[in-house]
Design a protein around this nucleic acid. Structure first.
Length: 638
RNA sequence: GCCACCCUAGCUCAGCUGGUAGAGCAACUGAUUCGUAAUCAGUAGGUCGUCGGUUCAAAUCCGAUGGGUGGCUCCA
């Protein structure tokens, strides 16, 4: 028998009989490695661990401790679930696809007579456990396309047939475990017995091939880990994340609410939430003025004709609210740009005026589809920290860098990590090649200079220009776009914006649309989750609560309260006839940063004893000293 | 918008296969004046999201509608 030479990642190479498998190689190195290996990379291609090696090759064993290994594991667990479902429901359910995802996998099933519910998860899990116990070998077979199609057609799996028909390469690989067969590229574990810890988590609808016009499938999500301990840890983490869900905390901290009577997706800000929001808005105005922006304000409604000029009527009408008064049609603004265009056009502009940076905390309304609304993170009425920068082509580069720095500074203040994505020209788009080239390279070079990693979404830009998106994660790791920087070639064109250049001729300015926090609502939602409601002092709606020990100190406590309020400290009082422990507990649950304890000692000395929400007591101090402590701490953010 | 599920007192929830509702916390009243995460006792509070249907009888079954949740599509 021929001998093959296998080179390993450590640079060594060994010889094996032809037809040896990666598993054989692993065994020859060590029993432990063999146990932990789930697949192998053969000349850079991921293959089953039982693949016979016929030629000299580079081999790398893939273990569960690697991302690829875990993916193979989860993918095999997805097959296991499909196997369990098929053996429970047979032909009532058809299989489609089931990939590994972060922390687990999902599998999409089709059925016109069975509806999956969470109640039956246990039954499916039990069946899966049985199949694990049976330790069924998972084997790969390669068949010609025609035969594969015939096979799956006979099984009544028409979704699989469709997949095979669309597969570019032949032959087709299929995997068998017991009586279950699935079309799959692989690789897979070599036996169901290797699967250890999994849990079905939810069921949801999903369109076949992500296409709205195709049948609705039932998607079962599950999580899977190499051992029970890791699974438990993950479930605990999700549990923790749910506790900081902004919808839950928003109610508990009495920040905001939604009302069925008011309408879906419309935020109602309660005193504390409105104060938090006001603090953020004040911060924004300050920061924008510092960076050379002008604050502007436009109306909530503008005549429909103007929305026709801008192209919104044509492209965005379905998302807009319209109203008619005295025979005149108006559109409630879904974006803030129109008024900014009008301000620019209100006089003749010279190149000496540029760049112009119009900033508006603009409240917009968009008719988002009912199914997409989500707490504060996706609403129908929201306020953007919006700005439109109008500049010369030469200035574009510097302006974009300025915005990126702005984003970096602000995210730094809040301690957010974020992801950057750049989207380039889509197929359907307007503007000249030159425009796109210039704008895209301005965005790219600004990103490169920032030194931050970013992803490129080829062809994912808006039809009117390329963009950079900045995404933050919520408690459950879902990503939400907050900041965005977009170049726009349509509006300067449509509104015929011009400036007089050095040569005395009219030129077309370049426009950048950008937001930093994005929508204040969304940002606050993410902010609540980020801090789990423990806001930094400078944006805490309530910074301190005055607590007296008994009625004896009520008068003095009231005095302290008035003093601090007058000093501009956001203070509240709790002078109820309750035990101190009780009042501390309540203040703690409200997540108030400072509790100011006042007993006989403090009354006597004219002091207070601050207790931080961490539980730590500060030394007693006078109210005036405390006010200074608060101001100093607030100033630290910049 | 699509699929599934959910909507009971201010909040969190219980109420099996139909016989017109229950707890804890909060609220209110009284007692307690007690120094770092819940003092005790009592009182009151709901046409069970809304509208319609089936039934002798509906919180419970059916339909419509509003709102929410998990996803998908969308949006960015």
């Amino acid at each position: 028998m021929a001998v093959v030479k296998i080179s390993l990642p450590d640079g060594s190479s060994r010889e094996y009989p032809g037809g040896s498998t990666p598993l054989d190689v692993a065994r020859s190195i060590g029993e432990r490695l063999a146990r932990q290996s789930v697949a192998a990379s053969l000349n850079g291609r991921l293959v089953d661990i039982q693949t016979p090696i016929e030629k000299d090759a580079r081999l790398e064993l893939v273990t569960l401790s690697s991302a690829e290994g875990l993916e193979v594991y989860r993918h095999s667990t997805a097959h296991l679930m499909a196997h369990a479902v098929k053996s429970l429901y047979g032909r009532d359910v058809q299989v489609t696809i089931g990939p590994a995802i972060e922390n687990g996998f999902y599998y999409d099933f089709f059925s016109d007579n069975h509806i999956f519910t969470p109640e039956e998860f246990e039954i499916i899990e039990q069946k899966m456990a049985d199949l694990v116990k049976a330790d069924l070998p998972i084997t790969r077979e390669v068949v010609p396309r025609d035969e594969a199609i015939r096979m799956f057609r006979e099984m009544g799996e028409k979704f699989k047939v469709e997949l095979i028909e669309d597969l570019p390469d032949e032959p087709i690989s299929i995997y068998r475990q017991g009586d279950f067969v699935d079309l799959c590229r692989g690789p897979h574990l070599s036996s169901t017995g290797y699967i250890k810890a999994f849990k079905l988590t939810s069921v949801a609808g999903a369109y076949w091939r992500g296409d709205e016009s195709r049948p609705m499938l039932q998607r079962i999500y599950a999580t899977a880990f190499p051992d029970a301990k890791e699974l438990r840890n993950h479930l605990r983490k999700i549990e923790e994340a749910r506790k900081r869900d902004h919808r839950k905390l928003g109610k508990e901290l009495d920040l905001f609410s939604f009302s069925e009577e008011a309408g879906a997706g419309l935020v109602i800000w309660h005193p504390k939430g409105a104060l938090l929001r006001t603090l953020l808005e004040d911060f924004e105005r300050r920061e924008h003025l510092r960076r050379g922006y002008d604050i502007v304000m436009g109306p909530q409604l503008l005549r429909t004709d103007l929305w026709k000029t801008s192209g919104h009527y044509e492209n965005y009408r379905d998302n807009m609210y319209f109203t008619e008064v005295e025979g005149q049609s108006y559109g409630i603004k879904p974006m803030n740009c129109l008024a900014h265009m009008l301000i620019y056009k209100s006089r003749i502009r010279s190149y000496r005026d540029l760049p112009l940076r119009y900033f508006e905390l603009g409240t917009v309304h968009r008719h988002e589809k009912s199914g997409v609304l989500h707490g504060l993170l996706r609403v129908r009425g929201f306020t953007q920290d919006d700005a439109h920068i109008l500049c010369t082509p030469e200035q574009l580069d510097g302006e974009i860098k300025g915005v990126l720095e702005f984003v970096r500074d602000v995210m730094g203040i809040f301690g957010f990590e974020y992801e950057l994505e750049i989207s380039t020209r889509p197929e359907k788009s307007i503007g000249t090649e030159e425009d796109w080239e210039r704008a895209t390279s301005a965005l790219m070079s600004a990103l490169r200079d920032s030194g931050l990693p970013y992803e490129i979404n080829e062809g994912d830009g808006a039809f009117y220009g390329p963009k950079i998106d900045i995404k933050l994660k919520d408690a459950l790791d879902r990503k939400w776009q907050c900041a965005t920087i977009q170049c726009d070639f349509t509006l300067p064109e449509r509104f015929d914006l011009t400036y007089v250049g050095k040569n005395g001729e009219k030129q077309r300015p370049v426009m950048v649309h950008r937001v930093i926090l994005g929508a204040i609502e969304r940002f606050i939602g993410v902010l609540i989750e980020h801090f789990a409601g423990n806001f930094p002092l400078w944006i805490s709606p309530v910074q301190a609560t005055v607590l007296n020990v008994t009625d004896q100190q009520a008068e003095y406590a009231e005095e302290v309260y008035r003093f601090l309020r007058n000093e501009g400290i956001r203070v509240q009082k709790d002078l109820r006839n309750e035990k101190l422990g009780f009042k501390i507990r309540e203040a703690q649950m409200e997540k108030v940063p400072y509790m100011l304890v006042i007993g006989d000692r403090e009354k006597e000395n004219g002091t207070i004893t601050p207790r931080y929400r961490s539980g730590k007591n500060l030394d007693s101090m006078t109210p005036a000293e405390f006010a200074r402590v608060v101001r100093d701490e607030c100033r630290q953010y910049h």
